[in-house]
């Protein structure tokens, strides 16, 4: 029970990160490898501001703003000039940006992990006899659920959201209909980065922040996005939660615990073999 709930909360974190990947992929048709490192930057922002001011709310707001600005800057400087270039070039640039952020973080903060205790302070409750649950887990779950619902409503109901859907469907047609494609791509990066800031807050419960803080959840969330079907928003949620559950279940069984990473990535390869577009993905045909 506790394992499942922990798995769900981890899955929710993965889902939040995966949403960032999948939205950018759906709209800009590129893999934003630097997304994991935006999470790392967010976590460092929380750490720095929290240790200066001691106020978790201010720290979190600063972190969101910083992540959003960073996401937009990365898009403008590194990805926008390559809009017409081959996907391989964009992918390699994204890897470069990711390494750049990690290197800068190492340069500024050093390699030593720094722990931030914000949500962990909330303690734990006993819901039934013998079942003790951290409040931070519940907070993660509830907040993630709210974020996902808001995001879904935003995309379905607002004008901007529908413009995003239109751009992901057909960029050229959307432009002809008067949608400012560049602006929509920028907004997508901004939303993805804001979600990354939330994910960094929740992930700080689990591990202390270090320059490679975002690398592993980044890769895993990407795997989750691919498992769920990249480009599909419900797919990212399903994939993230599935991966989080698998990870926690594997970790709770002693025999296979060391092989958890292998199992997760094995699942990814298996899904790619059986259904390359993911659980909820659509088939895309290649054009000549």
């Amino acid at each position: 029970m506790v394992t499942l709930l922990d798995g769900l909360s981890l899955g929710a974190i993965y889902a939040l990160i995966a949403l960032g990947y999948t939205m950018v992929y759906g709209i800009a048709k590129m893999l934003n490898f630097a997304h994991g490192d935006v999470i790392m930057v967010g976590a460092y922002a929380i750490f720095t501001v929290f240790s200066i001011t001691g106020n978790p709310v201010i720290a979190f707001i600063v972190s969101i703003i910083l992540c959003v600005v960073l996401g937009i800057v990365i898009e403008k400087l590194a990805y926008k000039p390559l809009r017409t270039a081959s996907p391989l070039a964009v992918l390699i640039t994204a890897i470069g940006v990711s390494n750049l952020l990690q290197g800068l973080a190492q340069l500024i903060f050093g390699t030593e992990p720094k722990s931030v205790i914000i949500l962990n302070k909330l303690g734990s409750v006993e819901i039934a006899d013998g079942i003790i649950l951290n409040i931070s887990t519940i907070v993660t779950l509830v907040l993630s659920a709210i974020i996902m619902i808001v995001l879904t409503l935003f995309i379905k109901k607002t004008k901007t959201g529908r413009a995003m859907l239109a751009v992901s469907e057909d960029k050229g047609a959307a432009q002809l209909m008067g949608v400012n494609v560049n602006k929509i791509i920028m907004i997508t990066f901004a939303i993805g980065s804001a979600l990354a800031a939330f994910a960094s807050l929740f992930y700080l419960i689990k591990i202390p922040v270090s320059p490679s803080f975002g690398a592993l959840p980044g890769i895993k969330a990407f795997a989750a996005a691919v498992i769920g079907g990249i480009g599909s928003i419900p797919g990212a949620m399903v994939g993230g939660i599935l991966l989080g559950l698998v990870e926690n279940i594997c970790l709770s069984i002693d025999v296979i615990a060391p092989y958890t990473t292998s199992i997760e990535f094995g699942l990814l390869i298996l899904i790619l073999l059986v259904k390359p577009t993911g659980i909820l993905g659509k088939k895309i045909r290649e054009k000549v």
Binding site: I92, I95, G96, N99, Q102, G103, L104, Q106, P211
Partner: peptide
């Protein structure tokens, strides 16, 4: 980490 940064910028 300077190495990492320089590689990334070159890339």
């Amino acid at each position: 980490s300077v190495k990492l940064v320089v590689y990334a910028i070159i890339l």
